[in-house]
């Protein structure tokens, strides 16, 4: 796992952000096994995610789970991440709330199988990290965006020594992976300009 930054900039849970405890509800529990259970949890998570406003972030809190097998992890979180990356939930995002413990290995394995990643925090408000797979050349971009809190494409390009198009392509990939937010700033000098910010 890669740490993105050490200092938190934003407040913990603001409007449009919701924490979902995986141990709660009918499908929840401390022992999360099988794809069937994972599917039920994912359906609930999907409903909550759809209920969030545009740009909303769902914090999926698995800290109360004692055991999660690979099948559950893939079905509940791997497929959810895949659907977020596929644009099924618009610009709504998912953040994993979990500590660095063995249970994470199954989530990591599932996301790597899918060439996907999620942003993870030890607790809402804590420093964000990556779980899963982010292409090496995008990690620096991701880290710079999280360090900045919010940054324009031009500033990001300047910091990383890339031209604007290359920078935009890299950041767009991170947007599509569901790891950052992108905002369009039409009032920028010279016309349209994107700015990026972390989701956790």
């Amino acid at each position: 796992m890669i740490s993105l930054k050490t200092v938190r900039i934003k407040p913990v849970v603001e409007e449009g952000r919701e924490i979902f405890d995986v141990t709660s509800g009918e499908a929840g529990g401390k022992l999360m096994v099988t794809r069937g259970t994972g599917r039920r949890v994912r359906e609930v998570l999907g409903e909550v995610l759809e209920g969030l406003p545009s740009g909303g972030v769902l914090y999926v809190d698995t800290r109360g789970v004692e055991l999660m097998d690979y099948s559950f992890a893939d079905e509940a979180l791997g497929i959810l991440a895949s659907r977020v990356a596929g644009g099924e939930y618009g610009d709504r995002r998912v953040v994993l709330v979990e500590e660095d413990r063995e249970l994470l290995e199954n989530i990591e394995a599932s996301l790597r199988q899918r060439a996907l990643a999620m942003i993870r925090v030890d607790e809402p408000g804590a420093a964000p990290e990556i779980v899963g797979e982010v292409p090496e050349h995008l990690v620096e971009t991701l880290r710079t965006i999280y360090d900045a809190g919010s940054i324009t494409n031009a500033d990001l390009a300047a910091k990383l020594g890339l031209n604007h198009t290359a920078m935009n392509n890299r950041a767009t990939r991170l947007v599509k992976l569901g790891l950052i937010h992108r905002h369009k700033n039409t009032a920028a000098p010279g016309g349209r300009q994107y700015s990026y910010e972390g989701i956790a």
Binding site: R35, L67, D69
Partner: peptide, 27 residues
């Protein structure tokens, strides 16, 4: 089985290993 292992003082890591093994292979 998790309850039995807890009652027998198996550590969480061992319990997770035994339970995940059983659940994956049963599945």
């Amino acid at each position: 089985i998790s309850e039995i292992l807890t009652n027998k003082d198996y550590r969480l890591r061992e319990r997770a290993g035994i339970c995940a093994t059983l659940s994956e292979i049963c599945a």
